[in-house]
Nucleic acid binder design. Structure first.
Length: 218
DNA sequence: GGAAAGATGCCCT
DNA sequence: GGGCATCTTTCCC
């Protein structure tokens, strides 16, 4: 399948699925490793894909911003306790679909929230799903990204390995620079809201809250 | 059974 | 940058 990137039309590298081991490291490592990877979704409507440009790490039972804080386990959060590579998908504000990928071993409820991507292919399909939103808002923000890709709530709890619809690929691309800052919308988490656990590809136009304060870079 | 909050997005100024 | 739609999940009666 040819890659046709809007920003980098010269990219023509072989695709391979990311290995299971990628998700078995700590959630902060996995978050940064996922930047630049390709998230592809195939549905009966067609296929679409983005290069992941922005993520957030949710640190399990000790992170007040994490749904599994304090070991909380409900029907919704149960997938977070499964092994690395499990999908954790839930509805926010009653209408926005949030896509997360669980990290670590079984029983360690950490996950990476996929917040934004750069369109690679399936542009027409994504624009149709997003009601012709402009390019800079097509796949930016966790709710918008899920809508563009056609992420389904029914996939929560399923593994991305051997998944029928969703695949994460590595085409050899590595972000030239990664920036990090505070996570978005977690002010209720008190001191844990201050952690710089949001990561994005430096200078990418496909990042939300671009004006937010940058803390450090890697 | 009911109330409150929420890992947002969009439109307005 | 501020207001608000919108409805599921969770928790507490």
């Amino acid at each position: 399948m040819p890659i046709q990137s809007i920003l980098d039309p010269l990219a023509e590298l072989p695709l391979r699925c990311v290995p299971r081991e990628l998700f078995l490291h700590n959630v902060w490592q996995v978050s940064q490793d996922l930047l630049g990877k390709i998230l592809a979704v195939q549905t009966p409507e067609g296929s679409a894909a983005v290069r992941i440009t922005e993520v957030e790490a949710y640190g399990g039972i000790t992170d007040r911003a994490c749904h599994a804080y304090g070991g909380k386990r409900t029907a919704r959060t149960a997938p977070m306790y499964q092994s690395g590579g499990t999908l954790y998908i839930y509805l926010c504000y009653g209408l926005h679909v949030m896509l997360n990928i669980v990290t670590g071993e079984i029983g360690d409820p950490c996950a990476v929230l996929i917040r934004a991507g750069e369109p690679l292919w399936g542009l027409d399909l994504m624009q149709k799903r997003r009601k012709n939103a402009p390019l800079h808002r097509l796949t930016v923000g966790p709710g918008s990204l899920s809508q563009a890709l056609g992420i389904s709530l029914e996939w929560t709890g399923q593994s991305i390995f051997g998944h029928l619809h969703l695949t994460v690929y590595d085409d050899g691309y590595h972000p030239p620079q990664i920036e990090q800052g505070k996570r978005i919308g977690v002010d209720y988490a008190g001191p844990d809201a201050e952690h710089p656990w949001r990561y994005w590809i430096a200078a990418s136009p496909f990042v939300s809250h671009i004006s937010r304060k940058k803390l450090t870079f890697v």
